[in-house]
Design a protein around this nucleic acid. Structure first.
Lengths: 253, 253
DNA sequence: AATCCCTATTTGTATGATAATTTGGCACAA
DNA sequence: TTGTGCCAAATTATCATACAAATAGGGATT
């Protein structure tokens, strides 16, 4: 059960989007992903949460509904809310992925991500080469141009993300779209993670160009190969970061 | 209760799990996925939904929070709730996928699914061959045995699903787990769709056995090949179903 | 030992009130 | 005319309270 006295109000992190129920969901979600409440465990009931956070039941319930919708919980009358088994979690949900990342060793996380990226992105590039519309090709091209203009550094992350997302969109298969969030998260956080130790940032531009050209020509095979090549480079960059193996904990705000 | 005769009240389908806010979410979710409310559109406000469905605002808000958590909506004060762009939808969420399927032509849906399955499942099988634990291998084996016992027919669907899910679990990469829902949905609905026109149902057993053996031996390459082979067969089965191209509408219960 | 029923607990739904947010228009000034 | 700032209205966000529904678990009865 819940350790300690319930009289103590837990203070909620001030996240950017300031909805109370959202903050609650974030707080509870983080606790679930970090293992405070394991799958199968029964959470404190609604009244408890009210006391813990000092909010109304309405707000608590909306937070719980949010987590339920993401597959983390299931509520039953007289029982309470129970944490669902991991395989039911919508891990590719933006929030869930963020909570997951916060609870994990970055090394492990990037390893999982790269494993999936190497499976999917070459095929996505191949599909894009075959299925892209002219408009989608334009989006890819523009993202690439912006990337080139920005050169290396923090500013190149956004167009880089746009490039990969545009590619994904051009594959024209809705079932792949959830991976956009994973890619976005990967690229953004990877930059933070590797930026201090990125040996040859400009090397990525030609690799991206290779994908763009193959997709432009409609050459699926070449696109696949180029995408894989880029990912292999990314692997090496990650590998060169000294393994701190520490969870990035937010310093006290 | 006041199950009124308000002529304007939309009657809610009686889904298995009978929560009012859940039914509401289902109803609104279906409308979004079927295009009644397109991305960018602003939904009726909470008061409107109350009138439309004859429920309290509490219930409406919980339904909206559910849909928001699945990426379908975003609410803003003074504006209302707006439908998010498709790429933000958690399409691999169980509910969203079901609504999506209900709104689509089955042929198209299965085409998308098979495209993704052919990308992922061979790699999943390969990863499973490398990463499986003994326990996971046992789960796969047991599912296969149950499948063989059940022979063809409706009873073989459940173990078939279990086989593929066990394989997925054995790949030991959390980021792949959302596809379990897709696979489950695909296999289940595929049976409904092809059962009347499935020429050689027993042919699938040896194919599954091929995957099992490869995974047992830890032979990634063979596992990949066997998984792809199974999927190619599935493709053919689908192709042989005469294209009715009709949406399966539930007859009024 | 088995069955039935009752009650206590917890989530589910309803109602009504107030707070917070912010768009869009209006008044006013430059 | 144009810009600027401010107000009001619409809508979601939050709170408080009450009652309904479901059901696990215990207790009474057989």
């Amino acid at each position: 059960m819940n350790a300690g006295k319930l009289s103590q109000k837990t203070s909620l992190a001030k996240s950017g989007d300031s909805n109370l129920h959202r903050k609650l969901a974030q707080s509870i979600g983080n606790q679930i992903l970090s293992g405070v409440y394991a799958p199968g465990a029964i959470l404190p009931n609604e009244a408890d949460w009210c006391r813990i956070y000092g909010t109304s039941r309405t707000t608590v319930r909306e937070a719980v509904k949010t987590l339920t919708a993401k597959g983390l919980l299931k509520s039953r009358t007289k029982i309470g809310s129970r944490v669902e088994p991991r395989e039911n979690w919508n891990i590719l949900d933006r929030d869930v992925l963020a909570w997951h990342m916060a609870a994990m060793n970055p090394q492990e996380f990037f390893a999982s991500v790269q494993e999936v990226r190497k499976i999917l992105e070459p095929e996505i590039a191949a599909l894009a080469a075959l299925n892209r519309t002219p408009q989608q090709l334009r989006a890819i091209t523009e993202a690439f141009e912006d990337m080139r203009k920005a050169k290396a550094g923090r500013n190149s992350v956004a167009p880089d993300v746009r490039f990969h997302l545009a590619l994904l969109a051009a594959a024209n298969n809705v079932l792949l779209s959830p991976f956009g969030i994973m890619i976005e998260s990967a690229l953004t956080n990877m930059f933070e993670f590797t930026s201090t130790h990125n040996p040859e940032p400009d090397m990525f531009i030609p690799k991206h160009e290779g994908i763009l050209k193959a997709v432009t020509r409609g050459n699926a095979k070449a696109a696949r190969k180029a995408a894989l090549s880029l990912l292999t480079d990314t692997d090496q960059t990650i590998a060169q970061v000294p393994s701190k193996a520490k969870k990035p904990r937010k310093p006290k705000a």
